[in-house]
Design a protein around this nucleic acid. Structure first.
Lengths: 341, 341
DNA sequence: CGGACTGATTGAACCGATTCAATTCCGGAA
DNA sequence: TTCCGGAATTGAATCGGTTCAATCAGTCCG
């Protein structure tokens, strides 16, 4: 069966194509009996609107592009979910793509979106500033940055305060009596890591010392290596480690378990991101939670705001505050319960 | 700057619109100097094709819809990545949506895809058979099922052999000398779970016994509860547990750690799915790996095959074989290394 | 009864790229 | 010189909805 077009519906219902279109888009203009006849014809023919024809005429799609760094990363999928939800509520569609942190791939996806004439794009940028993005914006496709460098004033953006996150962690560890804390996860080229470290350093009271143990990347394997190195070092061992993300912390936990050391009594651990598996770890992991879905939701709102306001738009930067989630991996009183004197 | 249309490009290059279109789509028809003039004009005007106009005329989009049960689940994101890759190679776009296991949401996404006139849809179905899907197929949008019930002959599908997966696990445990094995994760309404259990039972040698410990769902929390119940039970404790998925296994590992029991010497564990965090667990988790990206890749191929062949198409069901990944959580010889006599 | 007004409906123009039959151009053969 | 064939190019028709000025049918009021 060939697909029905609006013309077929009109013929079957005995009205003009204009009326069918009105029933679909502005039903208040059409008398009820006519509406019913048209809707009956729509059902009868199983009519499905052709979005291409529609958006060709209207000039824009009811779709939003979303390019994340890595669909495999739970952080981004939660952001995507938030965006989905917000878009759904407004009858829009989110098209999700992953750049796998490759600029070329990001570029291809953006190009696709632009060809589709999406309303706008939410982007967690791969690499550094991409001139292609600027050009796309200039051509009329607005972009909202997600979790990107702070201080970009020429775009709307949504971020989380990583400096505060770092501060929260160290304040917590200090309150638990820790004096020797190591920050694990150096890679200072990553803005997030830099900020977290900065916050951590800022929260130290006078006497305390914050060692920094850099790692090549932010993976479980790197965490394992870091733990080995720290435990083998001749210096006085730290009593707590603040890892730049949860993967590092899980890696450290793995190595500590292998060496039959106890968390938190031998070494307290705090991660960052509060990925789903943080609470699922053998010793549930303290971590810093970011309002991920909220991030996506607000990004969609900012985008639509920008679209609606047109030229009058002033870019806004929204920054969320993270939240410390304390679990067994850094909680002293739980230890007491587990090792009765 | 208003967006350039193909007409503007034609004027600037001093050719007709037909020629511009040919440069873009069938460059072999156009003389080189003309091509260069046109391409220069394209760059000059920053021309971006309007995909709506194109697919309106051509009749179909260069896009494939993909509806997964849950974008948060690493299994599905890997499938998506595989599909992405295959599509990319063919110059197609994958539109990824998540049904969150809600039929209504799935329905909305499918409707969107149909309006977009996508080439076809890859679907991991929520709920049971959905008549809407049948109707969509009848209207001309082909569907390839991903990881859905086996034995569906009226569609193309891609699955993994869960019966074999279950068998592999039990054969491995038996080879390690285990006699009392418990299968954790009952929920027999889930086809995958049923198949894994069936495979497990089929692999038992004469004397061995397979207890089944049902759980409400397949989460970490359920795994914790299961571990508590099994450890508290008065029966002779099993020496190994085969969990229906990795989340259950991680939950059990958590509870075992809390009770200061050792894996695998007190209880060996094997999970299923080989999610990223299986190898990241405190005791790296044995698990069954499915060729996830491959799943997505082949699904795309099947879809395009179906599109190309048209009416002559015969549906195909592709079944992959899973692979057992043995890690510390069920490996005896590692224990020896860790606890020298 | 005529005119003004409201509400419902019509139908043709339009969005922008693709396609294909028709046309132009050129070089070579007769 | 004419004619033919092939390559290059043209331009109008087309895809399927949306939109809006124009038309039509009633209703109300004076």
């Amino acid at each position: 069966m060939a697909r029905a077009r609006i013309k077929d519906v009109a013929r079957l219902a005995g009205v003009s194509v204009g009326t069918v279109s009105n029933v679909l888009n502005r039903p208040d203009l059409v008398a009820s009996p006519t509406q019913e006849r048209v809707l009956a014809a729509v059902r009868e023919l199983e009519f499905v609107r052709n979005a291409s024809a529609r958006s060709l005429r209207v000039g824009a799609n009811r779709a939003i592009g979303l390019v994340v760094l890595d669909v495999g990363n739970p952080f981004f999928t939660d952001v995507a979910r938030g965006a989905q939800e917000a878009a759904d509520a407004l009858g829009m569609m989110v098209m999700l793509c992953s750049s796998e942190n490759e600029v070329a791939r990001q570029q291809r996806h953006l190009e696709m979106f632009e060809q589709q004439r999406v309303l706008g794009v939410l982007l967690t940028p791969a690499g550094t500033r991409d001139p292609h993005v600027d050009e796309m914006v200039k051509r009329g496709t607005p972009v909202v940055l997600l979790d990107a460098a702070r201080g970009v004033r020429k775009r709307c953006s949504v971020t989380v305060d990583d400096v505060m996150g770092g501060r929260l962690v160290v304040e917590h560890l200090v309150a638990q009596g820790h004096q020797r804390i190591t920050f694990v996860g150096g890679e200072p080229s990553v803005r997030q890591v830099r900020d977290r470290l900065r916050g951590a350093q800022g929260a130290l009271p006078g006497g305390a010392h914050l060692a920094v143990h850099p790692t090549a990347d932010l993976t479980v394997a790197a965490g394992r290596e870091a733990a080995k190195a720290i435990l083998a070092s001749s210096d006085r061992r730290p009593t707590a480690a603040f890892c730049a993300n949860d993967l590092l912390a899980l890696g450290m936990l793995q190595e500590l378990t292998r060496q039959r050391l106890d968390v938190p009594s031998d070494l307290a651990l705090v991660g960052y991101d509060d990925i789903e598996f943080a609470s699922a770890a053998a010793v549930p992991l303290s971590s810093v939670r970011q309002p991920r879905q909220e991030l996506g939701r607000v990004a969609v709102e900012l985008l639509l705001e920008e679209v609606d306001e047109g030229a009058a738009h002033r870019h806004r930067q929204v920054m969320f505050t993270p939240e410390l989630v304390v679990r067994d991996s850094s909680r002293v009183d739980v230890m007491a319960g587990r090792r009765p004197a």
